[in-house]
């Protein structure tokens, strides 16, 4: 990163790492007592969302603003945590996560909460919709980017590749795909090998590079490198499910973690110890 670029970026790496920690705290706070949930995804995506929400993106409803698309609705716990950290969501609402009648649902519903652009839950819908939004921006001459968070399991859906091929062909430069590669899915460890990811995406006409997705500095460097390219951009972020909480990281690779009532205090303690 050149000094000039560094100067324009909100937050230093150290500050953003602290914000990622706050996002993890929010995630644990939301998951505690629920017995089970997508706490693993929430913890693994904290650095990515800290980088996007607290530095890289200019989110809002203005004509020139960026848009954020969360493709896998199952990660909504991380989205709510990050939005609260970025002061886009009242942190007091986090306690209603998953409660009957709450808008802070275990997935996402477009428009139910300001800033939620996509209904998630059915996987691999995000990139096709984001491609349409990128075309919309191009048609209207709007400069904003469409940042799309995609999970690696979604790559098994055909619609993902329809959109990847299309975006590469159309050189949809407004598209920024951040791919969370935690190599975990509902049945456990990745059931279909997807590597080599970087080579695949480059072959489809995308700018692509990979970084440690739990290292804020590496993510920021990747986002900086991507920025100038005129192709659609994919940043492959290699993450560790439940990062920051050894108790959960050592558990069987689980997409949907089960946590006993007596374990939540340990989860909270380990999160603070590992800081």
């Amino acid at each position: 990163m050149t000094p000039a670029q560094a100067a324009t970026r909100a937050g230093t790496a150290a500050e953003l790492a602290a914000r990622a920690h706050n996002i993890r705290r929010n995630v644990v706070r939301m998951a505690t007592g629920k017995g089970e949930g997508y706490v693993g995804q929430g913890l693994d995506a904290a650095e990515i969302l800290a980088a996007l929400f607290c530095s890289e993106l200019r989110l809002g409803t203005g004509r020139d603003d960026d848009r954020f698309i969360l493709s896998p609705g199952h990660y909504s716990i991380a989205l709510w945590a990050a939005m609260a950290e970025a002061v886009m969501l009242d942190a007091g609402l986090l306690d209603s996560y998953g409660a009957d009648g709450s808008d802070i649902i275990m997935s996402t519903h477009r428009g139910a909460v300001a800033g939620v652009e996509l209904t998630g839950g059915s996987l691999a819908h995000g990139l096709p919709v984001a491609a349409g939004m990128a075309i919309g921006n191009a048609l209207a001459g709007r400069p904003g980017r469409i940042a799309t968070f995609v999970s690696d399991g979604e790559l098994q859906e055909g619609s993902q590749w329809e959109a990847i091929m299309f975006a590469g062909h159309r050189r949809l430069s407004a598209l920024l795909m951040v791919l969370d590669v935690n190599r975990t899915q509902a049945d456990g460890p990745l059931v279909i090998e997807h590597e080599p990811l970087v080579e695949k995406l480059r072959a489809f006409g995308w700018w692509c590079d990979d970084v440690d997705g739990n290292d804020v500095s590496a993510i920021l460097a990747g986002l900086d490198a991507a920025r100038a390219d005129e192709r659609p951009k994919a940043l492959v972020c290699r993450t560790r499910l439940a990062n920051g909480v050894p108790l959960l990281m050592q558990r069987d690779r689980a997409h949907f973690v089960r946590v006993g009532d007596d374990e939540w205090q340990t989860v909270a303690d380990q999160l603070e110890e590992g800081r």
Binding site: R110, E117, P128, V129, G132, I135, G136, S159, A163
Partner: peptide
């Protein structure tokens, strides 16, 4: 690519 057809159309509508 019909899934992408409808996804892209939805993204345009959302824009």
């Amino acid at each position: 690519a019909e899934q992408n057809l409808i996804g892209v159309a939805a993204g345009l509508a959302m824009s």
